[in-house]
């Protein structure tokens, strides 16, 4: 790297000049300082690990019939069987992967699209700003879940459709937050300075503005991830997600809810997983947003 010669030079002239002030701790390090973030990371990591590696350690496959339906405990199935006699624990281990994948892609897609729109609207202003933000307002008028159900019932349950719909419903919410952050950055002189030398607009947005809205961006990403998990799980429960016989936490709750008094495990395990995951993600987001309030005060005087 080209940094090497500069480093050696600074070593040579080092003692002559005052030592550099240490940089302020970054967003992640500040967030890590909060106890809640640590708890959140532990909870989220536990569920993510279960979802990712569950299928490799499960005692049975997700569709294998191992015993009679609705027994609370059997040989080799510590949490009993579901309404068809499949191993609850195995289905639990299998059921998280797709949910996490869908939720994560939906959150990423929505945040990405929202960020682009927010920065463009906040920087370009004028009619483009009006067009983007008023379209956003129209999208915001549809409740997330109702919109998803409406479109899914027309087109049919598809994994890609879940991602697109949830992403699109996240988009206007993210765009609002990022536009607000952009407006604060655009007022500052370093953006003007880039304009004065004619740096192309897209480059100003990518190089000058984007790095300065990362704090609200991360908070938004965490928030949208939390909501996505909930919505994907609910869609699964309502039968709009994965179709039987695939394993899915939302689906499991729906399939086994009739016998909740007889075989509570079949409902309790997926419910607990979704709850712990949501709480964990929320705690991380909370830590990030607390840290960003401290960092994004703008310019100190």
């Amino acid at each position: 790297m080209s940094a090497a010669p500069v480093k050696s030079e600074s070593a040579a002239t080092g003692p002559a000049e005052p030592a550099a002030k240490p940089r302020r701790a970054g967003l992640f390090r500040t967030a890590w300082g909060f106890g809640r973030t640590k708890v959140g990371v532990v909870l989220t990591a536990a569920i993510v690990l279960i979802a990712l590696f569950g299928p490799y350690i499960s005692p049975h496959t997700d569709t294998a019939l191992v015993a009679e339906p609705y027994v609370t405990s059997a040989d080799g199935s510590p949490f009993g069987t579901d309404y068809l006699g499949r191993d609850v624990f195995s289905r639990f281990l299998y059921g998280g992967q797709i949910l996490l994948l869908l939720a994560a892609s939906a959150a990423l897609f929505g945040t990405l699209a929202g960020t682009v729109l927010g920065i463009v609207a906040g920087y370009r202003r004028g009619w483009l700003d009006e067009l983007i933000m008023r379209t956003n307002d129209i999208l915001l008028a549809f409740p997330q879940l109702i919109a998803a159900l409406l479109i899914m019932s027309i087109i049919g349950p598809q994994a890609w459709l879940i991602v697109v719909i949830i992403g699109v419903t996240h988009m206007p919410r993210v765009a609002r937050v990022i536009r607000e952050a952009t407006l604060r950055i655009v007022e500052q002189d370093f953006v003007k300075s880039a304009e004065a030398i004619g740096v192309p607009r897209w480059k100003i947005m990518v190089r000058e503005i984007l790095p300065n809205v990362t704090s609200p961006l991360l908070v938004e990403l965490g928030l949208r991830l939390t909501y996505s998990i909930g919505i994907v799980a609910v869609l699964g429960f309502l039968g709009m997600g994965l179709q039987p016989p695939d394993a899915d936490w939302g689906l499991m709750i729906n399939e086994n809810r009739l016998a909740i008094t007889v075989q509570p495990w079949a409902v309790a395990l997926p419910v607990a997983a979704v709850a712990v995951l949501t709480i964990g993600a929320n705690l991380i987001t909370d830590g990030l947003s607390r840290a960003s309030i401290g960092i994004d005060r703008g310019v100190e005087k």
Binding site: F190, K192, S193, A196, I197, R207, E208, P211, N212, V299
Partner: peptide, 14 residues
């Protein structure tokens, strides 16, 4: 070339 009034705002902090 132009130099701005407030050096606290004229440099991209990142």
């Amino acid at each position: 070339q132009y130099i701005f009034q407030n050096p606290y705002e004229a440099l991209n902090p990142r």
